[in-house]
Computed example of a mutant assay.
Amino acid sequence: MFKSILVAIDLNDPMSWEQGLPQAAELAKASGGALHLMTVVPDMGMPLVEEFFPAHYEEQALTAAKERLDQLARDSLPADTPHTQHVALGQITQRIVETAEQTGADLIVMASHDPDLAQNFLIGGHAGKVVRRSPVSVLVVRA
């Protein structure tokens, strides 16, 4: 069924791993597949904004995200679950789709909040953007 499953995790939102990670682990176990856990540290977007952050902020943020993802994997996955961790910097949707392509994922799993019509109209949700841009199937888990 699914041999390589990418699980997109927002480290600031426990729902993203409390809901999505158990389902992804169950799918991987049932199909003999492996998990790729990933999180994205958003970049500043504009050089002007970077001036307001301390030097080496992005490197420190990436290191902290990797440590948190490592701890999450230890706490949330059975010890025998094959997995790899990925931490990326940049635009969230773009990095998720790129990582899916780089890892050969055949499924992306991510959690999503109940839709807020005003927010989705103005900026759109990450899950919706990934669904529209992904070259593979996407399982969106609602909380």
Rank of each mutant, 00 (worst) to 15 (best):
A55M: 06
M44G: 15
G124K: 09
P47F: 15
L48R: 15
S134D: 05
Q119G: 11
E101D: 08
A65R: 01
L122T: 12
D75N: 07
F2A: 01
H126K: 15
P14C: 01
R74P: 04
A65N: 02
L69G: 08
A24T: 07
K66A: 13
F53S: 01
G124S: 13
V131I: 15
V138T: 03
T99D: 04
P54A: 05
V136E: 04
D116E: 14
A8G: 09
D75F: 00
G90D: 05
W17T: 09
V7H: 01
D13W: 09
D75K: 09
P135V: 10
I9R: 08
S112R: 15
I9V: 15
A111N: 11
F52T: 10
Q94F: 07
D10H: 03
Q94E: 10
A127V: 08
V109H: 03
P42M: 04
L77V: 06
V109R: 01
R68L: 07
P47C: 14
A64I: 09
L77C: 03
P42H: 04
A28L: 01
Q102C: 03
A88Q: 14
R142M: 11
H86D: 10
I5Y: 01
I9Y: 08
S16K: 04
E50R: 15
P135G: 14
K129F: 07
E59I: 03
M1Q: 13
P42C: 02
L69H: 10
Q19S: 11
V49C: 07
Q60E: 14
S134T: 10
L27C: 00
L107V: 10
E101M: 08
P135H: 14
V87C: 07
E59Y: 03
P47M: 15
V141P: 00
R95V: 00
E51A: 15
A111I: 07
I5Q: 09
A100L: 00
K66V: 04
P115C: 05
L6V: 05
I9D: 10
Q23L: 14
I9S: 09
D70S: 11
V49Y: 12
D106M: 02
M38A: 08
V131T: 13
Q94L: 05
M46L: 15
V138R: 03
W17R: 06
E101H: 04
S134W: 04
E59S: 15
A8S: 11
L11T: 02
L6M: 02
R133Q: 14
Q102P: 01
I123K: 12
D43M: 02
Q85N: 12
S4Y: 00
A8K: 01
V87Q: 09
R68S: 11
A118G: 12
T103K: 05
E18Q: 14
E98V: 02
W17P: 08
Y57N: 06
A8E: 02
E26L: 12
I92S: 13
D70L: 10
L89W: 06
G124R: 09
G20N: 08
S31E: 02
M110E: 11
S76R: 11
A8W: 03
Q94T: 13
G125N: 13
F52M: 13
Q119P: 12
A65K: 06
V87E: 05
H56C: 02
D106C: 01
